[in-house]
Design a protein around this nucleic acid. Sequence first.
RNA 1: GCCGAAGUGGCGGAACGGCAGACGCGGCGGUCUCAAAAACCGUUGGGGGCAACCCCGUGCGGGUUCGAAUCCCGCCUUCGGCACCA
Length: 846
Amino acid sequence: MAERYEPRQVERRWQEEWERSGIYRVDERSDAPKYYALNMFPYTSGDLHIGHWYHFGPADSHARYKRMRGYNVLEPIGFDAFGLPAEEAAINHGVHPYVWTMNNIRRMEEQLRTIGAMYDWSREIATCAPEYYRWNQWLFLKFFERGLAYRAKAPANWCPHCQTVLANEQVIGGRCERCDTLVTRRDLEQWFFRITAFAEQLLDDLDEIDWPERVKTMQRNWIGKSHGAEFRLKVAGRDDLEIPVFTTRLDTVFGMTYVVLAPEHPLVDELLAADRVSDVREYQEQARRATEIERLSTEREKTGVFLGAEAVNPAGGERVPIWIADYVLASYGTGAIMAVPAHDQRDFEFAQQFGLPIRAVIRPPDRDAGTRAAGGERNGTTPAERGGASPSTEGTVGSEGVPIAAYVDSGVMVNSGQFDGLPSDVGMERVADWFEALGIGERTVNYRLRDWLISRQRYWGTPIPVVYCPTCGIVPVPEDQLPVLLPEDAEFRPTGLSPLTYYEAFVETTCPRCGGPGRRETDTMDTFVDSSWYMLRYCNPRVDDAPFDRRAVEHWMPVDQYLGGVEHAVMHLLYARFFIKALHDMGLVSFKEPFSRLFNQGIILGPDGHRMSKSRGNVVNPDDYVQRMGADTVRCYLMFIAPWDSGGPWSPQGISGVEAFLHRVWGLVLDGVAGNAPNDHGSADERIVRLMHKMSKGVTEDIERFRFNTMLAKLMEATNSLVRLRGQASKRIWREASERLVLLLAPSAPHLTEELWHRLGHQQSVHLQSWPGYDEALIAEPMITLVIQVNSRVRDKLEVPADISEEGARRLAQESPRVQAHLDGATVRQVVYVPGRLVNIVASRA
RNA sequence: GCCGAAGUGGCGGAACGGCAGACGCGGCGGUCUCAAAAACCGUUGGGGGCAACCCCGUGCGGGUUCGAAUCCCGCCUUCGGCACCA
């Protein structure tokens, strides 16, 4: 008997040995094809929790597999090191963010090493290092030069708790993504990145990348492209004014009965009638104060006020009142709409609320006329009938004959002058032609996507490299003066202004252009800027005259396999794509997409099936398990729980099965070698060879597709079979089988297999070996189980030669006594034969 | 409200339209032990039967098919995303 496997010593020893021999150091000069395996880098929270393990363990196994397949694999690691928690620690515990962050990094490095991953530590990065963030500043300047970074005053999402503005993407259902506080709005001068300039490309290029459909859909929805038209409304009695509006339903233009501007719309002041001033001002103030959640709630009754002016409908020449209402967003389209209450649910509700006229100009398509327009072209918002051809489109009318909903589907135009009788889709085009001919409007496209607000009123981030000069205005800091360093001894007070604001030595500077006194920008950048290009930095993190080494980047990029959680589906992944497109435009990179292939792991739940949280008390500490059972056991168990992309609950008992499995492999490989070989081992050898090739095939297919759970099941199954065949095989075959098992398990249990590999007598690391192939011909079983059914119910199973003929199979089936018993006088109507699988005899009485 | 994914033993989960429940946990019985743990062997969807065997069973209701967990239609539930984007 070999001694029991002691993971604690073995794992530590091999981790040190791998470090010493540098087998994971990556060299671009290799002849092997490159493979960039990237994991979303961790935030420096200070503790590597089980969720991190769930991400990094299986991800590393996949990278290791690729390496054994002959790829030159780059699997880097680093830290997303700027962000609010560091500052909170400063405010609450008086620890400087830098100290807090660096301590956390040190601790996490230690914990990460216990995973036993093949990270190339020589490429480690931390985004809070000046050597890193100076390049955020450099990139900002490049963006600024090209008009991709700009400063503007806009109503911004403000989190009262975090005391900072947030990007649109960071507001989830009207609440702060980080702390769940209700977000309010503030008008502030802020810096933006012009991501909208790439909306079309960001949308189109999704077709080029191998990402989960789910994520692509989320991005498509986020970008929210819609086709329509913009046209200008004349204001009655004001030849100097025009109101541009955007619509996707030009076919309903004859149904416009009023116009609505967003409360913040710049034309409000111009249009405001003297006797309406107080009402309108009050409403604007109220709208400004409303939280996002209040404003966005569709449940809420519509509010608004009349401006005291009228617009002219270019379609009918009719005068319609102009209102302001907060259901119209200043930031979408033109911030103003033509309201068609008969055919838009929101306008309908508003019209009901304020007694405005409702005029139907679209009739549901006539089912008999054969002009079935496609129903539900836009995302219908009506609670009434979906589908224009349904019999009860009159469902838009309540029992008393009072309309209860707008008819929002397409149909046939009515009450629309020369356009009467046209189906919606044709009508839209005709009206667009007409407006274009009149010169009052044109076809346009609008996006839901907003520009990326990157200013943050915080300390622990990258200073925005700009100086405000009383004479020169906004002056970018010249490249050769970068980095603009964060002062080390700032004060941390939660005031809503960046701590940098109070730091005179930082703020007061000279204008780089005129040399006069200037003031530095005190806002810092959103930390998503850091993670938008870190994959480029990894390619050569020591380069000090550019953000990235172009030659190294052209070698490694794009990332072949990106792994991480689905929570970054829109934010990080969209921003990173935007960065690459911007860099591509500048000629700095040759590719257009950063991540060729994406896969999202699921989340690991507590033993109670709920999300782990301190308040629930269901948090699993990986370090405890690593201490007791070893990293390999933890890694394998995490892979075994469930399909990787679905995640699932951690089971304290469940892990023992995996632990036992690894110990079984240990005993099998070490004791089995010495097993005696009796004279007649031919049939055992044959079975083992078949078993091994079958296992290789299954394991290869599974690991390729991240099906780690079934991969391990197959390894367990094969191990169990080998245990049963122990001592029956020839020495040569047994050794081959042992080695193959070790190799196939190597990516999943890197320490155990390394130890076994060496004990089997090898000098070189198991992780430098090739992935074992398999021979399809050797997998074929000589005998198969033929299932015999009568009327689709299994009645017998026969062991037959695999190459049995159809006639042979049919005959055997019919001859089976069990089958005979079930046929018993019935007439055979049909016999279905599935080669190598089953015979189904269909029979009936009379 | 809209879009998407998923519902399978006591539990986690397997199953190219062809033996439902692989693999593992847990349970039960046994070997070893003074005993326990560990390890090992057997068994384990439900019901009926002494047995050979038989019946039922993949959220619910229909359909297609010789055959459906798998495909189609309609519900229900859960989870994710979006939610006044004109």
